[in-house]
Design a protein around this nucleic acid. Sequence first.
DNA 1: CTGAAAGCGCTTACAG
DNA 2: CTGAAAGCGCTTACAG
Lengths: 358, 358
Amino acid sequence: MLRVDFSLGFLYTLKAFSEMKQKFRLPTIADVASRAQVSIATVSRVLNGNVPVQADKAQRVQLAMQELRFVPRSAARVLASRKTNTIGLVFSEIQGAFFPHLLKGIEAQLRADGYELLIYSTDSLHPKARKPIGEHNTDGLLVFTSSLEREEIERLYSISFPLVLLHESPLQGLNIPVITIENKDGAVALVSHLIEWHNRRRIVFLRGPDGHEDSQWRERGYREALESHGIPFDEKLISRGNFDEETAFQAMQKIMADDIPFDAVFAGDDDAAIGVYRALKMAKRLIPDDVAVVGFDDVQFSRYISPALTTVRAPIEEVGREAVNQLISLISGKQAQALTLMRTELVIRESCGCPGYP
Amino acid sequence: MLRVDFSLGFLYTLKAFSEMKQKFRLPTIADVASRAQVSIATVSRVLNGNVPVQADKAQRVQLAMQELRFVPRSAARVLASRKTNTIGLVFSEIQGAFFPHLLKGIEAQLRADGYELLIYSTDSLHPKARKPIGEHNTDGLLVFTSSLEREEIERLYSISFPLVLLHESPLQGLNIPVITIENKDGAVALVSHLIEWHNRRRIVFLRGPDGHEDSQWRERGYREALESHGIPFDEKLISRGNFDEETAFQAMQKIMADDIPFDAVFAGDDDAAIGVYRALKMAKRLIPDDVAVVGFDDVQFSRYISPALTTVRAPIEEVGREAVNQLISLISGKQAQALTLMRTELVIRESCGCPGYP
DNA sequence: CTGAAAGCGCTTACAG
DNA sequence: CTGAAAGCGCTTACAG
């Protein structure tokens, strides 16, 4: 008896093991085909719905798929069809209040067109043993600012891989569509408002990260607004804010330590404006009475800080959506627009000196 | 002459066209093999580095790969190896200041372990003709709150597909690891602080979305703190804030319209606190003098709003990292911890009535 | 409308 | 250490 029990127990263990194995053995198109009494080609056809299939067969296939809980493996489809149905997003800065807006726009549009989203951040310092994202696992790439080395972009371009650049000018000689925003116009509006309505003439400008396109255009707008109002440009009023709070804070401390007179600050973006607020408050300079402050982007928190931030609304979510549209055009072999410039809009709140709406 | 020119032009066009075609024909492992004079098996071995290969052959392969700019196709690897090397993230709410923190933690940890990230938001109302994410295109799923129907979770569980739940309790009878935060303790600390330090006794609590686990635990903490201080629970002080600004704003308006007396508000989370601020300011009630306000999460803007928000710091980024760790354990066939509770921490700023640090 | 078969580009026992 | 070959699970001409 003991022996028998043992033997049964052993068998049971084996059975359990083989059942486990079974669990991992997911149904394939062949299982569906045999259950529905059709060929695998027919199953594939009802799956894709591109070729007509006799109604009763189609029904049998549908039923079999449900019963087996069949889900086609992506890898097999991709390999056979040479389409990944996936779009990649490459970016460097996951931080920044800016990012969720962009992601939301991209996600929404992508899904509407039936694509998946693979994301890859170049700021995590992971070993790039394997190329993380590119022609081997996506149909096209959205590249945000300078998150990808020029060399890699050129390589992808040279194999005609669909690319769309966000917030970055086209690279010399490469015909890659670009989506960006009216940085210069926005900056002109902002600075002109400071000059015309609030009579400011010593306006600090905080640059973004080195080589950041958005920053360069904003600076150009800043200079143009100064010039058109006959205000001389003063190099000492320019510093680097890096589009982040901490750098902006330090930049302002330096400017104040150097005793450079100023009556307003264009922070570069909203994140930097936070650092400016902190530095000014610490120095007991009143915003906007002593110093007017303006940002750029109009991210979520901008209306809630105190005083509420005057800024420029950048249609970031729409940039995301439009970028997806352009990329899908490219993937479909259609033309895409070389340059898409999204309109920006002045958002007047309190930090410039205008009366707030409490 | 004219004819010759034309003819040449025509040929040129054809040539350009065939070149274009060529461009899309990416190198495969077979191209590398023949160039390096080895078998494709050998190429595969140097690619994966798991089996020793003779040094000179390995070198020839490396060289050939570089020259051809070879990148192995993911789909082929996945199909052959039955591993996608991809983790999926399913979530419902891309909005909310909460999300970038979570994403950042996930991204960083994922890359460190060599996985890709496929993301899928259930809030975009896209047609789910194809199952967007699951066993067919990932090795495991991170499921945030109730972003996936119970039925689908059960299905995945029944095929032993690796799952980790974020901010949600384990489902009845299913042994799925959960990562969440000390919501109750945080809420107790918050409410006790209001009672003990600021002598508040009529504290409004704004619930999150229906059925949201985080909210339920916070409410439990709220009740416990009340009870342990001998303050009777008053149903009228509870309303729904939905973890968002607008709902919270309306909830507060209703409470004030109903003339329900209160001297503090626990907003449920930081996003909701924004709505509370707006409603109170509009009603000319001073924060914190008339009404103390506290939030939960400590997202980016919380320190910058005015008055600076007293809240609880939720280690969201770490939740993301830990979730990835657990999921990868599961994928590797190892055990994962059934429940991981992350510590939260009271962050005292000004909105509770404490003196600020300007 | 439908099936048999080739092929997508890799990995991995298997035999040596 | 290495190559020939089977196989991963689909799609898609091709012929009927």
